[in-house]
């Protein structure tokens, strides 16, 4: 074999491996979407039907009109969006302030605060479920989206501060000093100089918090009993019946739930990796 043929074969093998990885990753997602658009007789069959022929909107329509557990899927999408957006906005404010403090100032408890952030991230959220459940009950927040919002702020905050501080640190200090010398006050400097430059990082951090909250399952399952206040992940369960599962409906709902996350992922993919392994990957 000539070196050229060998190189071509090698390239072909690599590309084939790439396609195999692509198929392995995409097939389950494709199957979810395909099932959502198949009529029932193409779902409950022992033969393999690669794509819906013809595609049917029955399931999508049904989850919106007839709904699940007595409510249109619309209701759960709204609940989920409300919880995730509120938690993100609140969390972003707290995270930005704290991140500015640790990235811009040297103060006495700075190291302790950073180590505290790291350690609380290690505590499994599932472990705090029981004490937080009793707290929420005592405060009268059981069955309220507000309780869920507050808890999600707490769950996402340590990571948000941790991620955001690298973005704040990346803004050259000289810019703020220049504004400072030009007579801008502390607040003006923050708002007009630092904030616009940190904004992309804040967006990336917020998207990460949004996805975490949007996907959050166990707190939504335990803290909400009223079916009208369910979030998407909890509502999905209701398609699984005692004897048979409404696979078409559940796949339509799962697809609806996955779309916003997928869009956000493609937007911030690079930043998320750098935030997660910040400090480990060094050029």
């Amino acid at each position: 074999m000539s070196p050229l043929t060998r190189r071509r074969l090698g390239r072909a093998a690599l590309n084939a491996a790439g396609v195999a990885v692509f198929l392995f990753a995409v097939f389950p997602v494709y199957w979810m979407v395909a099932t959502a658009f198949k009529p029932n007789d193409q779902i409950f069959t022992t033969s393999f039907i690669p794509f819906p022929s013809p595609p049917s909107l029955d399931h999508v329509e049904r989850v919106f009109t007839r709904g699940v557990a007595g409510h249109s899927i619309w209701q759960y999408l709204v609940n989920s969006t409300l919880v995730a957006l509120s938690a993100v906005v609140l969390g972003a404010v707290f995270a930005l302030l704290a991140a500015t403090a640790v990235a811009r100032f040297r103060f006495r408890f700075r190291t302790s605060f950073l180590i505290l952030l790291l350690i609380v991230q290690m505590v499994p959220a599932e472990a705090l479920l029981i004490p937080l459940f009793t707290m929420v009950k005592r405060l009268g927040l059981y069955d309220q989206l507000l309780g869920l919002i507050v808890i999600n702020v707490g769950l996402t905050l340590p990571f948000s501060v941790w991620m955001l501080r690298t973005f704040v640190a990346a803004v050259p200090k000289e810019l703020e000093e220049a504004a400072w010398i030009d007579g801008a006050g502390r607040f003006t400097t923050f708002w007009r100089v630092l904030f616009p430059l940190v904004a992309p990082g804040l967006v990336a951090t917020s998207i990460f918090a949004f996805i975490t909250t949007w996907n959050e399952f166990v707190y939504a399952l335990t803290l909400i009993g009223d079916q009208g206040k369910y979030t998407m992940p909890v509502a999905l369960q209701f398609f699984v019946g005692q004897r048979s599962t409404d696979w078409g409906g559940i796949m339509a709902a799962s697809t609806l739930m996955t779309i916003p996350v997928l869009v956000f992922f493609l937007l911030v993919q690079r930043r998320m990796v750098s935030g997660l392994v910040a400090g480990a990957v060094k050029g």
Binding site: V26, P28, T35, T45, P233, W247
Partner: peptide, 28 residues
Amino acid sequence: VVVGIMAAWATPPTAQAIVWKWLFDSDA
């Protein structure tokens, strides 16, 4: 390939479980 694997990564845990349950369904 990155866009492809992103689809798996982005799938919410609830949807992950449901999809794999469906792939491994006993009858269909």
